[in-house]
């Protein structure tokens, strides 16, 4: 997949993906990055992820607390807030609708191109 376009798409949905991943439970930054990578989005750099987490926290969609210390160093854990859950549900609906429409255009457009090239109408 072309790198620039992938990065553009990711910029648009990364915050929602973070919300989606946190729905499964509390998590910290590096763990989130690994989960997103495993889910197929590719490696997410810390420089990209943490500003997103800060923005979500400032918007009140996630909340954070420091945990750990006994079995390892302290880490900042994030979890969804009620507002975050609402936003996630809404976003999921919006996204499937949006992605469906875009998909239709792309596949129809592809068919139209093939038809036109074939000379038939």
């Amino acid at each position: 997949m072309e790198q620039d376009r992938r990065a553009q798409w990711l910029r648009g949905v990364l915050d929602l993906c973070v919300l989606g991943t946190l729905a499964a439970g509390e998590s910290y930054g590096y763990q989130l990055a690994q989960a997103l990578d495993a889910a197929g989005l590719g490696p997410i750099q810390g420089g990209t992820l943490y500003p997103v987490l800060l923005r979500l926290q400032r918007a009140g969609l996630i909340a954070a607390r420091w945990r750990g210390g006994e079995s390892g160093p302290a880490r900042k854990y994030y979890r969804l807030t009620a507002a975050g859950e609402t936003t996630l549900r809404q976003a999921a609906t919006d996204w499937s609708g949006f992605a469906g429409r875009v998909g239709a255009i792309l596949s129809t457009g592809g068919t139209a191109v093939r038809t036109a090239a074939g000379g038939a109408q």
């Binding site: 910290y28 750099q45 810390g46 420089g47 943490y50 880490r75 900042k76």
Partner: peptide, 23 residues
């Protein structure tokens, strides 16, 4: 302090170099 501590934790966990992970 929080931002720096979180970055430090991330670097510990990931084992990456700071410039690679954060720039």
């Amino acid at each position: 302090g929080h931002v720096v501590a979180e970055a430090a934790a991330h670097l510990r966990d990931s084992g990456e170099s700071p410039l690679a992970a954060f720039g």
